[in-house]
């Protein structure tokens, strides 16, 4: 029962981060500025949701932990690559 409640709290928190971090995407700021917010929503928010899912189905923990680690790794690398690319474009043009 407590686990269920905790899982709901985690997923809600993750959804809040998703909403908050995705919103600046429609604004007119530089891609780098948006990237900071995306790292809040897509990395941290998604990790919170994954933890919520993990609390709901603990029997599948090995695969979920693998997904959690690779989520953090890939999103961070993607952020670095996108930052590097978008900056190169700015200095060219």
């Amino acid at each position: 029962m407590i686990l269920q409640w905790l899982s709901n709290a985690c997923i809600s928190f993750g959804l809040f981060l998703w909403l908050w971090g995705t919103w600046p995407l429609v604004g007119r700021r530089s891609p780098l500025y948006k990237l900071h917010f995306l790292s809040v929503s897509d990395t941290l928010g998604s990790m919170a949701i994954m933890i919520g899912v993990l609390l709901r189905i603990p029997r599948e923990w090995p695969l979920l932990v693998l997904a959690l680690i690779s989520l953090a790794l890939w999103n961070t690398i993607l952020g670095y690559v996108l930052a590097y690319c978008s900056q190169g474009e700015d200095s060219d043009g």
Binding site: L25, L35, D42
Partner: peptide, 29 residues
């Protein structure tokens, strides 16, 4: 509903890297 935000950004975005950001976000979500 939240997934609609990056979809809209990808459709409207004029800057190529903003578009890439939106697509990356869609993939994760």
């Amino acid at each position: 509903l939240i997934l609609g935000i990056p979809l809209y950004a990808a459709w409207k975005g004029e800057h190529i890297w903003s578009k890439m950001l939106a697509f990356a976000s869609i993939a994760t979500k």
